[in-house]
């Protein structure tokens, strides 16, 4: 290998002389027939890491849910609350960006963009608007009755159709992600 380096420096004369001496070269490697090959490879790293943060506030029998995306990749977000049979839940959002799916989940209607670091080092994080979950106690509820409400949030990386357009959140494949939720009660 090292010898190769020196050849250009040695000049044409030496190379020519060497070529003349090929005559006396001994046995070398021989391989079958004329064959050739070329190969190329490549690929990209997959970045799926996402970190979402959920803020829940509870007041007036209402949970106010906001999800922020601290990861760098855009995600879909959906949420759903479960309660016992004694309490009914009513969902609403002020800007209408949380939409009911056919599966009981409420989907934030657009991809939640990843966090972007600004030139000054500050990180701007995208947040959803508030999803309001109002807990409606039964009419015969008494002071001190409790109602356990479990809120489940899920987020998955944004998915695309074959043309590269982002799918609607409801149309995405949510089949496997682990559910995550919180348990919080409401008291009357």
């Amino acid at each position: 290998m090292k010898r190769k380096k020196i050849l250009p420096a040695a000049g044409y004369a030496a190379a020519a002389l060497a070529a003349g001496l090929v005559l006396t070269a001994g046995a070398g490697e021989a391989w079958a027939y004329f064959t050739t090959y070329t190969s190329a490879s490549g690929g990209y790293a997959i970045d799926l890491s996402n970190e979402t943060r959920i803020v829940e506030e509870y007041s007036n029998h209402t949970k106010r849910l906001v999800v922020s995306n601290d990861g760098t990749r855009p995600v879909y977000v959906r949420a759903r609350a479960f309660s016992g049979s004694q309490c009914a839940l009513a969902y609403s959002s002020e800007d209408g960006r949380w939409q009911a799916g056919n599966d009981g989940y409420y989907y934030f209607s657009e991809p939640l963009a990843g966090a972007v670091a600004g030139e000054d080092g500050t990180v701007s994080t995208a947040r959803t608007s508030e999803l309001l979950v109002q807990i409606e106690f039964p009419a015969d509820a008494e002071e001190g009755d409790e109602c356990n409400v479990v809120v489940v949030y899920e987020s998955i990386p944004v998915q695309y159709d074959t043309d590269g357009n982002a799918l609607a959140p409801q149309a995405a494949d949510w089949s496997v992600p682990l559910a995550s939720g919180s348990t919080e009660g409401g008291n009357d």
Partner: peptide, 10 residues
């Protein structure tokens, strides 16, 4: 000979 004349013979 095909078996022994390989690419060096191009």
């Amino acid at each position: 000979d095909g078996e022994t004349q390989g690419n060096d013979y191009q």
